[in-house]
């Protein structure tokens, strides 16, 4: 457990210290959200209707963008090989890295989402639902992202492949994430979507470290 915490602490310290990458991702998230009105027009009613989708797409894209730094720097400088030899099981290391990824790539986005909601003319209740659905859904994105990053870490030019591999797997997360916000199917459908989203996140978080650790272990040597 102490090893797990040490890895988590190291990852967080690296992310916070490493040249403001967290801020860059945050900026990307806000800019993607803010650029949509330029494409679809400043019609407030339309914006308010599609705002949950925009926020989710922006969060999805920024999390995909941050994927490459999840394992690649450690793979390149050999830290990953050391982790494989360590007493701590690789699964725990991967889990710590995925959690750190969520803390540094998803949590800031959620904190910044009220700003985006303001730009997109979202009302208060929808904003609340958006924040809850992002909180429930982004762990699944981080977990799938962990698999994508682990699978491509052994390739030399895998940077672009991870998002392509992961995007189809994230379809359910987007569907239930937006479904939990928009009142399309009535309130009971939205709460059902919320529950599905939570189930998806729990399952992905529980299983993905094993798959990712296996991929790293067998993709190295």
């Amino acid at each position: 457990m102490s090893g797990f915490l040490a890895v988590l602490r190291r990852e967080l310290r690296l992310a916070l210290r490493g040249g403001g990458e967290v801020l860059t991702l945050l900026l990307f998230f806000v800019i993607v959200g803010a650029i949509v009105p330029f494409a679809v027009g400043p019609d407030k009613a339309l914006l308010a209707r599609i705002a949950p989708g925009i926020v989710w797409i922006a969060a999805f894209l920024s999390m995909l963008l941050g994927l490459d730094r999840l394992f690649r720097p450690d793979g390149e400088d050999g830290t990953l090989s050391l982790y494989r030899l360590a007493d701590l099981p690789l699964v725990a290391v991967v889990a710590a890295k995925v959690i750190a990824h969520w803390l540094t790539a998803a949590l800031p986005l959620i904190v910044a989402s009220p700003f985006l909601a303001l730009l997109l003319a979202m009302d208060g209740e929808t904003l609340l639902r958006t924040i809850v659905s992002l909180l429930l859904g982004t762990p699944a994105l981080a977990a799938f992202g962990g698999i994508g990053a682990a699978v491509t870490v052994a390739t030399r030019r895998g940077g672009l492949i991870a998002p392509i591999l992961i995007a189809p797997l994230c379809v359910p997360v987007l569907i239930f994430g937006v479904g939990a916000i928009s009142p399309l199917g009535g309130p009971d459908q939205a709460s059902a979507a919320m529950l599905f989203l939570a189930a998806l996140s729990l399952m992905a978080l529980a299983l993905s470290p094993f798959a990712a650790a296996l991929a790293i272990d067998w993709g190295e040597d």
């Binding site: 698999i147 699978v151 591999l165 797997l169 379809v171 399309l184 199917g185 599905f196 299983l207 067998w218």
Partner: peptide, 30 residues
């Protein structure tokens, strides 16, 4: 090396495909 890594991803996909199918069905009926 590719074979083992792709095998893991293929199985991850196999687990996910029923979930994707279910979610898409839910979404399209909505």
């Amino acid at each position: 090396r590719a074979a083992r890594v792709v095998a893991i991803f293929t199985l991850v996909g196999a687990v996910n495909i029923p979930i994707i199918k279910f979610s898409v069905d839910w979404w399209s009926t909505l």
